[in-house]
Computed example of a mutant assay.
Amino acid sequence: MEGLILQLMDALKGLSYFGIMLALTLEFVPAELVLPLAGYWVYQGDLNLYGAILAGSIGGVLGPLTLYALGRYGGRPMVLKFGKYFLVTEEHINKSDAFFEKYGGGVAFLGRFVPGVRTAVSIPCGMAKMNIWKFIFYTYIAMLPITSIYVYLGFRLGPQWTKAGEMMGQYANFLLLPIALVVFWMILKRRRKPKTA
């Protein structure tokens, strides 16, 4: 499977930044593979670092939007029927539902940092008819740091870019969790701030 994805990415490389966005729109293509590879392309001089991060972050929103739409317009029966095509199982959906009930709309942000929830979290957001602009905003600010780290690791590792996923797995909690908690706290603080007349 990984070999087929790499062939796809090689074909999409000719589309430059749009190719990165397009690859990430396909939910079955793991960002853990695409983003370090984009960083390697930066290392090779084919792309700009900031352009690759921006393209990756936008693509990281477009992919979840497909699952959001599936949840919003198809409901649970449609998700159970077609979720497998997005590598989303019923177990993922149940975990995401429970996470959504606990944290509300903020899961569009916080859920991106939780293994077993991050992919399917868009579905309960859609089923709850969460405001789409809030969904896009929360998803983007979650994807930006994740994308930045993966692309940067791919850039720094150069020909060893395939080790980026392993490194990220070792240090993800130290790198991403503090960012997630700070931003989530800021969102909660803003929501609870009393409105002045």
Rank of each mutant, 00 (worst) to 15 (best):
L12S: 03
L6R: 14
Q44C: 10
L8A: 08
N131C: 05
G39L: 09
F113V: 02
H92L: 01
K129P: 05
I146W: 15
T66M: 10
G63H: 07
G63D: 03
G169L: 08
K195L: 14
Q7I: 04
Q44P: 02
A120Q: 05
A197Q: 13
L70W: 05
T25N: 03
K189C: 01
A55Q: 01
I58P: 05
M130P: 09
I136V: 14
Y68P: 12
I136E: 01
V61W: 09
G105H: 11
E90I: 08
L26T: 09
F109Q: 04
I58F: 10
F82I: 08
R76A: 13
G39N: 09
I58R: 06
P178R: 02
K13Q: 13
K163D: 12
L176W: 12
K163W: 13
Y150D: 09
V117G: 04
A38P: 05
Y50H: 06
G158Y: 08
F86A: 15
Y73P: 09
L12F: 07
Q170N: 07
G106C: 02
Y50Q: 04
K189W: 11
H92V: 02
Y138I: 05
L176Q: 12
T139E: 02
A31M: 15
K13T: 09
A108E: 00
L153M: 14
A128H: 12
T66L: 13
Y43Q: 07
K102P: 08
V79S: 11
P77S: 06
Q160A: 15
A164H: 02
M168N: 12
E32Q: 14
